[in-house]
């Protein structure tokens, strides 16, 4: 079962597509309302401005794609949403980000809880140098899950969700770094899902993978739709077009990233309001 992709307007038909898919983890969220709203976000690395005045809403249960040329600040934008920017030296964020009535930029916020609710997948798969099982178990234990039976159940469930269970069920205790690239990336997704996040940020999750593995991950992301809110950065315009409900286009102007246009995916690709967007999605620039 797969989300049918020939919906003319994915959002108006969201109600139906959300219930599809054999996914077991994650709650249903069939109500496309803004889950994250970003207002006037600016992001600086030291004296360099990477992003300026970005405002957009991320809708619950939808897949939002961010497209744009290299260096326009897409990764930086994702990092701001789960406060991973705290880890980057010299990075300074201003503006407002609200997540579920929570002020993300609040310095007193417990970022660990925030990051549990907003998971992140990186461009290069980052399996920890542990066994497959320990990769998923470690964050679970860190978040206070102690009972082994419970942990094993979660491990199996999330591995099934990412379609990895059959491939690795006999080698749960072998090193995760021995898996293939595509398997590693799915393991990373499983690891994030195990924490039951509300949002998944994906930074070019397919770009380090071959077309087959990339297709598998893409199918997986589609199945997340409706259960999780997904923000995905991709350089693959066709992929964005295939899977996203909403799309945002970022562009470098005066060496600073700006959001040029944001809207429903179909509108961005078929009837862009902005000339820059039109030339980018038609492959004329960028």
């Amino acid at each position: 079962m797969k989300v049918s992709m020939d919906d003319t307007d994915k959002n108006s038909e969201a109600q139906q597509s959300y219930t599809l898919g054999p996914l077991q983890s994650g709650p249903h969220c069939c109500d496309p309302r803004p889950l994250i709203s970003v207002t006037d976000l600016s992001l600086h690395y030291g004296a360099k401005t990477a992003l300026e005045n970005v405002s957009l809403d991320i809708y619950q249960g939808c897949i939002t794609a961010l497209i744009g040329p290299s260096g326009c600040g897409k990764t930086s934008f994702l990092s701001a949403l789960n406060r991973l920017t705290d880890m980057l030296p010299g990075c300074h964020v201003s503006g407002r980000i609200r997540f579920n009535d929570l002020d993300v930029c609040d310095p007193d916020l417990d970022v660990r809880l925030l990051r549990r609710d907003i998971g992140m997948i990186f461009q290069k798969p980052v399996p920890f140098p542990l066994s497959v099982r320990r990769n998923i178990e470690l964050p679970l234990r860190e978040h206070g899950m102690r009972r082994q039976a419970e942990i094993d159940a979660v491990v199996q469930q999330v591995l099934q969700d990412v379609g990895l269970w059959d491939e690795v069920k006999d080698r749960l205790n072998s090193p995760a770094q021995a898996l293939s690239g595509g398997q590693q990336q799915r393991l990373c997704i499983a690891r994030a899902l195990a924490l039951q996040p509300k949002v998944l940020l994906m930074d070019e999750p397919c770009s380090a993978l071959d077309p087959i593995a990339s297709g598998v991950v893409e199918d997986l992301i589609l199945r997340l739709q409706g259960r999780y809110t997904v923000v995905i950065v991709t350089h693959n315009l066709a992929q964005a077009r295939r899977i996203a409900n909403y799309a945002g286009f970022l562009w470098m102007r005066e060496r600073t990233g700006r959001l040029i246009e944001f809207g429903q995916c179909r509108q961005i690709f078929e009837a862009p309001a902005h000339a820059l967007t039109a030339s980018y999605v038609n492959g004329e620039r960028g």
């Binding site: 789960n82 991973l84 705290d86 880890m87 970022v111 660990r112 809880l113 925030l114 990051r115 549990r116 998971g119 992140m120 990186f122 290069k124 980052v126 920890f128 140098p129 542990l130 470690l138 964050p139 860190e142 978040h143 990373c188 690891r191 994030a192 924490l195």
Partner: peptide, 25 residues
Amino acid sequence: DEYRLAAAALGMTRGAALLHLLLPT
């Protein structure tokens, strides 16, 4: 550095990342 970022993105403390990932490496 990926280990540090990935561990933080999973909501692990720096202490835990250190103990389980960085020191063994």
